[in-house]
Design a protein around this nucleic acid. Structure first.
Lengths: 290, 290
DNA sequence: CCCGTGTTGTGATATTTTTTTCAAAATTTG
DNA sequence: CAAATTTTGAAAAAAATATCACAACACGGG
């Protein structure tokens, strides 16, 4: 059994369970920008991880090193070895896997999707969309499709905390008329529609549009037909090495939007979030995060 | 022109002519295995290069650093920057927006999350997990939490197409006993649990574990307590400039897993997908993608 | 609710590391 | 070739860094 094959990073992760809270916090901080932070002075590392100086000393001993200097010297040794090996310039995301591994191929594709999607987003339109969604004087409807309803729900889940006056329109088209009956001119519809585009969704969009609603559309690079009716269209690239399309980029955009809308409504959101936390505490559904 | 583009290595080479014999000897020794040797103690470096201790101190000052510690700190900074792959160094993803725009800040954070998450994924464990999930001889249970149930559902949605014999366990704990009654030894549970960790989920995991089920866990960098029971844990970094955590990285991992499992079961999946397409065509729920 | 166990941080102490001083060695120059 | 100049290294002084001992604290079990 050769221990040289195991990097210090691996070693830290293996021992993660044997570490205490503060030590784990430190360990994660080291991994955060590995190996640079571990090569600095102990004091700096401690401050960086928000733990006390002796915690660092104790952890490295738990990891099996004689002391912090010993730990550092091993780190340097590892760096030396890595610099010498010819595969040093290997530029993969999952470093432990070869570049042909699906983990790397998929990640590369997604990063590409993100780059291209962001490259063609109009920030003004984006901010405009956030403004519309943040505006509580109009009702907010959120609609997804067969696959995208999960994204719609994720969006809805967060919007619920940020603002009142919103509805998640479920896919079953029977219930639509009820929803639409309540839709007033100026109300905002957030619609998710990626290929293969759904007739249902288009129908609903048409009806909403006819009633004078404003539509914000999340779609793919080929754009759902709904985009003709939409005031703002956000198209995401969704190509990955798979039989299905990727929702990751769309997810990124959704989360950015959630964060942005939350900022616009911050004073109120804060209260709502605190109330929510209290309620969760009371029901003991969650443990406190330590 | 920014001097930050110049590495310390470059800087040493530029100044090589202004250095004295002993200093040059030292400089070349540093470049010999760069940057590891420069990150050790001054004394070791001096001995390594066969020069005296003060020579080192003098040289780094000639190079323009305040002292040896300053020199080291710059070296570490360089290492830090290098650790981020070239593509991750982008700071304006949405080219049309300034770098302080949320679109850019958020995307940068997510890319960082992806990089750090992938950096610590064990591809062997990942493949193992895919294998377990692809194995149709055991029942597959999928469980999410308050927020993560949307991810669980996304996963379930795709797994439905790939394989039979699976269940999406809804959050309401009333129904659990029924599900668990059917769980046999060797059945596979895919559990999503990110902070703030839910007691419900832990309870279910314990019951499942007690019945001899195998658990695959999607969690965050701090790892849900479920991970003690899990055969395979996949932890994603979820930090973004927002009041909430990001699910984007987890989404990426889920999609990669879907793709991988699908490849393992390809011959069968193909049939199932075609059947599904036919059914959708018949119900005219979707328009054909053109 | 208290106790005991285990964890964490503060401050003092010891060690190592860096800087400075100064004289010897090497190099240059007239 | 010798004097001036520069370079170099040994050793001491100064500064920083790491380790240690102990008290405060938090947590889980009785």
């Amino acid at each position: 059994m050769n221990e040289a094959t195991q990097t210090i990073s691996d070693r830290i992760q293996d021992k993660l369970d044997d570490l205490t809270r503060a030590e784990r916090q430190l360990a994660l901080s080291i991994l955060e920008n590995y190996p640079a932070s571990g090569l600095g002075p102990l004091t700096a590392l401690a401050k960086d991880a928000n733990v006390s100086v002796p915690t660092v000393a104790r952890m490295v001993q738990k990891l099996g090193y004689k002391g912090y200097p010993d730990f550092q010297s091993e780190l340097r040794e590892e760096l030396r070895a890595k610099a010498k090996s010819p595969i040093a310039k290997h530029d993969t995301w999952a470093g432990a896997a070869p570049s042909e591994h699906l983990l790397n191929r998929f990640t590369t594709a997604v990063i590409d999707n993100i780059r291209l999607t962001m490259g063609q987003i109009d920030p003004v339109k984006f901010d405009e969309a956030c403004g519309l969604i943040a505006d509580q004087s109009h009702h907010l409807f959120i609609i997804g499709g067969r696959v995208t309803h999960t994204l719609a729900e994720y969006f809805y889940l967060h919007m619920q905390v940020i603002r009142p006056n919103l509805t998640h329109v479920q896919s079953t088209s029977n219930t639509w008329p009820h929803y639409l009956l309540n839709a007033k001119k100026g109300d905002v519809f957030v619609i998710f529609d990626v290929r293969r585009y759904e007739n249902n969704t288009l129908k609903l969009a048409e009806m909403a549009h006819a009633r004078g609603a404003r539509i914000i559309l999340f779609t793919d690079q080929w754009r759902s037909p709904v985009h003709h009716l939409a005031e703002i269209s956000l198209s995401c690239r969704i190509i990955v090495p798979s039989a299905w399309d990727s929702a990751t980029t769309t997810m990124l955009l959704i989360e950015t939007m959630i964060s942005s809308v939350q900022n616009l409504n911050w004073s109120e959101t804060k209260e709502r979030m605190e109330t929510l936390e209290d309620m969760f505490d009371q029901t003991k559904l969650f443990r406190k995060f330590t």
